[in-house]
Design a protein around this nucleic acid. Structure first.
Lengths: 242, 242
DNA sequence: CCTCGACTGAGTACGTTGTACGCGGTCATG
DNA sequence: CATGACCGCGTACAACGTACTCAGTCGAGG
């Protein structure tokens, strides 16, 4: 019951007032966990492994964090802190949202395991709140709050969806241990089987005609993002579009 | 090595040619697993639990499926089969995409655990392929394939993003065992703490002014979807917009 | 300055998971 | 009809999250 009295990892004080000085810190533990997850995936960031990384006993971590779920919340919020939204709103909404979108995507690509974190709910950690303030502040002067929320849902949906697609490649490659080219080669028989069946003409055109090496992923994202920003522009009052 | 020769769960034949009649089937196992995941979450769908559900021994499942990951792929593809895209393209692209979007969202809400399935990659299971053919077929006559893919990324990103938000509520409620109102009440101290700190003015406006009970989630989704469809309309050649 | 209790990091242990292995029985094929 | 491939299943193991416990240590009250 003593555990249940805090509703949140954010409300739970890191350290009690009395007692010996702790040897580690939440930030240090979170950092180590992120390092492991970056290198070997979230499933490799077990409590034992994280503890070993900082030179502690496995059970020591539970002095700092109630459980693994909460530690993952700390990790996720730490990642939000990597996104640069300094100086927003700058007055140029399109530049601001472009910078945010590219920053969010880049963060996802640096930490692909973020795709496997679900629970998050309205995370509402300090870094996530910082992001909300900065990004929603960009259009706040021009739009009612509900409109703003709706547009941000479209923007975030696009960026996260795109990032999720790219990341599932990265993760598949890491997990299976074969390169992307190797993977493609391995899957070739299946794709050919689908093409030859003749039942999937549009998939066939996707596989044979679309994107491929013509457009890099970066370029493709940029184009998609411009389209989304055009939609946002259309929803703004005319005097705010510049 | 005998396992590695199939690149895919979809390429691996369900049954070898010879030998006694099997007592179960992939479809039956998948069905049971989905039933359990719907009721108690994906993490409750363990191999033992699924086997018990159909009255089999735990290890029997491995005769039908190489491992748990592949079974989850089967489950995910089964879910895609629930989405009604019959008769697409009908000639009215906006009606078609609206039906698809609502169907996709409804499927997510029926099976919230889909949010926790990551690997999926380009799933390319039969049901997913069926969906690709139908949905991309809607705009196929009006757009080059790359444009079509880009627009579908925006649409899917919006629907899945919105569904993911709603679903994380559902899942949190199920996992914690308390109702949404109860959860809100429990979190109230934290939200008040944030509001009183004065550091998060926009979050404050979101909490106090926005949506709330004024708009149901359905209505909010409908509005957002209309906006996305307007964007798609703007990208179509003029003669196709009607 | 002393005392004492709250708090420390760590070790051990338990229950649950996915799944490797091997068994005796069974049925389609030669 | 003989045979061997395949059936479902029981046992076993390693790895996980974490509950419990304990000797040592720091800091506040007298």
């Amino acid at each position: 019951m003593a555990d249940a009295e805090y509703v949140n990892i954010w409300m739970r004080p890191e350290r009690p007032a009395r007692g010996p000085k702790p040897a580690y810190s939440r930030a240090q533990i979170t950092e180590a966990a992120v390092r492991i997850a970056d290198a070997e995936g979230l499933e490799a960031a077990t409590m034992r492994r994280i503890a070993a990384e900082i030179g502690a006993g496995a059970m020591s971590l539970y002095r700092y964090v109630p459980g693994r779920d909460e530690l993952i919340q700390l990790m996720a919020d730490r990642l939000m802190g990597e996104i640069d939204v300094e100086g927003m709103p700058s007055g140029d909404w399109r530049a601001d949202l472009t910078r945010y979108a590219h920053g969010l995507r880049a963060m996802w690509l640096r930490h692909p395991w973020i795709a496997t974190v679900h629970r998050a709910l309205p995370g509402l950690g300090p870094q996530q709140l910082r992001l909300i303030e900065a990004v929603m502040g960009v259009l706040d002067a021009h739009l009612p709050i509900d409109e703003n929320l709706g547009l941000m849902a479209v923007l975030n949906g696009f960026v996260e969806g795109a990032a999720r697609d790219e990341v599932s490649w990265t993760e598949e490659v890491r997990r299976s241990g074969v390169s992307e080219e190797e993977w493609q080669a391995r899957n070739y028989p299946y794709v050919r089987h689908l093409l030859e069946s003749g039942e999937y003409p549009i998939f066939g055109r996707i596989a044979l005609e679309a994107r491929g090496p013509r457009l890099g992923r970066d370029e493709q994202f940029r184009i998609g993002l411009e389209r989304v920003l055009d939609c946002i522009a259309a929803a703004l009052p005319p005097e705010a579009r510049a």
